[in-house]
Every structure is written in C-alpha cells, then in structure tokens.
Write a protein that binds this DNA or RNA. Structure first.
Length: 134
DNA sequence: GCCAACGTTGGC
DNA sequence: GCCAACGTTGGC
C-alpha cells in the first residue's frame, strides 16, 4: 500500500468540499513531478490531505478510489487525474509547524520542496504523522 | 505584502 | 542550448 500527500488551498477546494462531494477528481495538476506521482498511485492508497495557505496543516485522510486517467480539464499535453474519496478527518490537524519540529519528518518534500502539490510519503512518516493526529 | 523557489517562455 | 525575464505557489 502506498502513502501520499496532496495539497489544496481550502479557499479553493478544501476537506469540507471533499466530504460534501463524497469523492472528487483531482484535476488541475500541471507539474510533471506531481503528474508522475499521480501516475504511480494505486487504488486503495492512503492520501494525507493538506491545507495550504491559511491552515498549513494536514486535516484528513483520503483514499484513492480510481487510478490515474487523462485529466479532462487539460487542453494540451498528457496530464492525469485520480479520484479521491474522504476516509476520515483527523482529530487534531497536524500542522506544518509540528512536522518541521520533528527531525524524523524534515526530509519530507512538503518542507524541502514547498511548491510540489502531490508527493509520496514514507510509511514511517505516515505513522509518525498519525501519532500527532490524536 | 514580501520574498524564495521553481517552472516556463522567448530572445539570442 | 543558454539565460534573463516573468509568472505562480506558498511560507513567513
């Protein structure tokens, strides 16, 4: 099973929108690295849902319900999307500050590559993050 | 609001 | 093919 983290600006599309919609197609990724990560996702993989900008925290866990397929919102180029469904909300959001303060987590692309919006998470990192979530 | 990081574009 | 200029993202 794979573990991932996706970022979203909650003012555009946040966790609450995902819960309301029941599932969503994760369209709009226009970065090659992020696209390659989407391509690697498997059905059933766990996806940490991170709110950028105002929140700067992981707020919930989603699940991959459909593996990569062409992004219908892309005019040119072979961009991909996956379907995500909400699994559960974290009892306590895990903030960027918390992640930065734990030496075991400072290697994450979330910190080292702040602009990347879809990234892999190691199982160890995933487990550590969940211990912070209460 | 500013700035760093990074990707993209276009002139040469 | 290089690099400067510019746009976007996201943390501070």
């Amino acid at each position: 099973m794979g573990y991932w983290l996706v970022k979203s600006d909650p003012e555009e599309y946040g966790w609450d929108n995902l819960v309301h919609d029941k599932f969503t197609s994760w369209t709009g990724v226009r970065n090659h690295q992020a696209r390659n990560h989407l391509a690697t996702m498997k059905k059933g993989d766990m996806v940490l849902f991170y709110h950028s900008q105002k929140d700067k925290a992981i707020v919930g866990i989603a699940k991959v319900t459909k593996e990569a397929y062409p992004d219908p919102t892309a005019g040119e180029g072979n961009w991909l999307t996956v379907d995500l469904a909400p699994l559960r909300k974290l009892k306590k959001p895990v903030t960027l500050e918390t992640i930065k303060s734990d030496k075991r987590l400072t290697g994450m692309p979330l910190i080292r590559q702040s602009r990347l919006s879809v990234m892999p998470v190691k199982k160890e990192e995933y487990d550590i993050i969940l211990t912070y979530a209460g």
